[in-house]
Amino acid sequence: MEDKDVKKEEHKGRKHVEDSQGDPRIIAFVCNWCTYSGADLAGTSRMKYSDNVRVIKLPCTGRIDPLFIVEAFKKGAKGVLVSGCHPGDCHYTSGNYHSRRKYATFRDLLGYLGVDLDRVEFSWVSASEGNKWVSIINEFTDKIKSLPGKSTDIFTKK
């Protein structure tokens, strides 16, 4: 996403709106070096974004196991975000490349088994992209909230 796409307004206040999904919990697995720092930057820049997200910090996308996504859904998350360094920027040179293969495959499998893929998001957010982080979180939260209340994931008891 280009910077210009990020609307200025999103940096301003964001009111919490209840909706069909109640208060959907979003769990984000992020790498320490890029996305976590990007999220910090959003903070130091005092940008505002949805408070539905809970961030779990890992050293690298290479450490973000697809199992985490499953576990997050199991524990009631309505959306899961995985985010790390842009291709080529990995602090550990290739962690994100290896994981990208796994995510592509795993996501494919999730979709095939009937998980609504709108609920799993992947992004590359660098340490300088505080604004991208903000728009990713906001857009993802909005998307989750707009999804039908009926859960389509296969990991929680109906």
């Binding site: 996403m1 291709p87 080529g88 290739s94 490349y97 290896h98 990208r100 293969r101 796994k102 995510y103 592509a104 495959t105 996501r107 998001e121 992947f122 992004s123 590359w124 990713i136």
Partner: peptide
């Protein structure tokens, strides 16, 4: 094996 290697040009469309 496919998950022992990667390519820089791997499928990336699903990642924002």
């Amino acid at each position: 094996p496919v998950f022992g290697v990667f390519s820089e040009s791997d499928f990336n469309d699903f990642i924002k």
